[in-house]
């Protein structure tokens, strides 16, 4: 448990716990951005042969995952006045305990699933499963729509981690990831639209002009 890979993955697991504990959207976004960075640099340590192309690809993912998406969402909540509180259905204390249970369960399940792991880290399958589960949990246990979107992004991080266990050429997984990214974008739009609807009682874009200051 001394390899850089394990350390990075345990940071990713840690970010789950912190995301469950954060009560405010800006905090949650920061945790997710951190998680994005951590998850994106995993391929660098996965022991694959690194070509220039894959390096560029990794760095691009890092920029998108760690900076672009969080920044976008941050802008959204800045622009559209969405409640800052994540409005939990399951309380924070219970969420933290649930996060611990989730990690334990994922560790157990990681051995059962027998993922085609060809890396040197035993922590990778549990982390991926935990991220998936944690995303689900955020979707279920938070009322705030942005928090739900963030949960979705967390799930996507998990899927990306699974993807890194395959070789770099298994692009369909990555494509799948990008697809989910797009979906997340759509959901953000949905939230915006919903907000517009709440504010103006309809989604008439003509009335959006009043948003201009």
């Amino acid at each position: 448990m001394n390899g850089p890979m394990d350390t990075i993955l345990s940071l990713a697991l840690l970010s789950i716990l912190f995301s469950f504990a954060s009560s405010r959207l800006p905090g949650l976004i920061k945790v997710l951005a951190f998680q994005g960075v951590v998850v994106s640099i995993v391929p660098l340590f996965a022991g694959h042969h690194l070509s220039i192309g894959s390096l560029v690809f990794t760095l691009t993912t890092l920029v998108i995952r760690g900076f672009a998406i969080p920044l976008c969402i941050y802008m959204v909540i800045k622009k559209v006045s969405i409640a800052r509180e994540v409005e939990p259905i399951v309380g924070y204390h219970a969420s933290i305990l649930a996060g611990l249970l989730l990690i334990v369960g994922a560790t157990w399940a990681g051995h059962r699933f027998d993922l085609p792991v060809n890396t040197n880290s035993q922590l990778l399958p549990p982390t991926a499963i935990s991220l998936l589960g944690a995303g689900m949990f955020l979707l279920m246990a938070r009322r705030n729509a942005i928090a739900m979107v963030l949960g979705y992004i967390m799930m996507e991080n998990g899927i990306y981690l699974v993807g890194t266990t395959f070789s770099m050429r298994a692009l369909h997984i990555v494509e799948f990831g990008i697809l989910l990214d797009v979906l997340a974008g759509v959901m953000i739009m949905a939230v915006m639209l919903q907000n517009i609807k709440q504010t103006f009682d309809d989604v008439d874009t003509a009335r959006l002009r009043t948003l201009k200051e």
């Binding site: 448990m1 394990d6 345990s10 697991l13 840690l14 504990a21 933290i96 611990l100 560790t107 922590l123």
Partner: peptide
């Protein structure tokens, strides 16, 4: 508590 528990599980 979460941190120690977490450390214990992965260790």
């Amino acid at each position: 508590f979460a941190l120690v528990f977490f450390a214990a599980v992965i260790t």
